[in-house]
Design a protein around this nucleic acid. Structure first.
Lengths: 146, 146
DNA sequence: ATGAAAATTCAAGTCGACTTGAGGTCAAGG
DNA sequence: CCTTGACCTCAAGTCGACTTGAATTTTCAT
């Protein structure tokens, strides 16, 4: 049951260009060509799901690539998973505080946000979190803004 | 109580270059110069805390800049805050699922992750979340990987 | 056989938030 | 006075994950 790139694209929601890009990066591999065109094994779908999982957890592609052993099997250090879980936990806590703060600011009766004590407290917390720890090369906050 | 750029940098943890960059972007303003050198009002610290708050909540700098009214006062649409809070909520839910999944995978006794039913379920969920909705120009997951 | 649609390669562009580098100016201390 | 170090400007570079464009080739339907 071989798949052509368009079919993989359609089933995963990724574009053909992205799949080529992933192949180039060593994240996936085609099993051959028909003419010029790549042919993929159905197993690539599971692999792409795995990659999506890694991405959703915040791993960079480079690191995801290294999670597959040469044989193609998944080979993840369990401590790494645990560490990532802890990291997510920290992120979640921060975001939760932020969400509560925003919610409060949105509902608060104070005429301007700066006059609301709660908002000012949030400000201090955010300042402490965001300003305190950054020394060099800090990746910054999540990118879910729109 | 005027501050020189180095002092603002030191108190906020941002670099002088970042402060100049923020000024260029219209996020902050110096109150004048002493020779060539910028002089900032102490109020810039509060403003930078506000900016940090916005960044921590995931707003892009452009949008943060627009949250200050011409007079310099804070002027945020409460509905925008509410919307952002909801957005954060969604992100938090996703990350929580991911964290639980990673935690499970780390502790799970199955010989390889792919043989663990829970892991495979997570995989489907991650796949659904990450693969289903992306059509064009999706910003991707948060960047807290290391 | 023909022509459109889709795939290919390779290079270059995009986005956001900064950082880095080159070259120049200036204020304070000895 | 003169050095030195912090500051200045402006341009260009960085990072990650793709996207886009141009030129070319191939496949599929008619």
């Amino acid at each position: 049951m071989d798949l052509d790139i368009a079919e993989v694209a359609q089933r995963t929601g990724l574009t053909a260009a992205t799949l080529r890009f992933y192949e180039e990066k060593g994240l996936i591999a085609s099993i051959g060509r028909r003419g010029l065109r790549r042919v993929f094994d159905a197993g690539v779908l599971e692999r792409l799901a795995l990659i999506a999982l890694g991405r959703a957890a915040g791993f960079p592609l480079d690191q995801i690539a290294r999670m597959f052993s040469p044989g193609g099997r998944l080979d993840i250090d369990r401590r790494m998973l645990s560490a990532k879980a802890d990291e997510l936990d920290t992120t979640i806590r921060k975001l939760r505080a932020m969400r509560d703060g925003l919610r409060h600011a949105a509902d608060c009766g104070a005429p301007s946000h700066m006059e609301c004590p709660t908002f000012r407290r949030i400000l201090r917390v955010a300042g402490a979190g965001a300003l305190g720890e950054r020394r060099r090369k800090t990746p910054g906050p999540p990118g879910q803004a729109g």
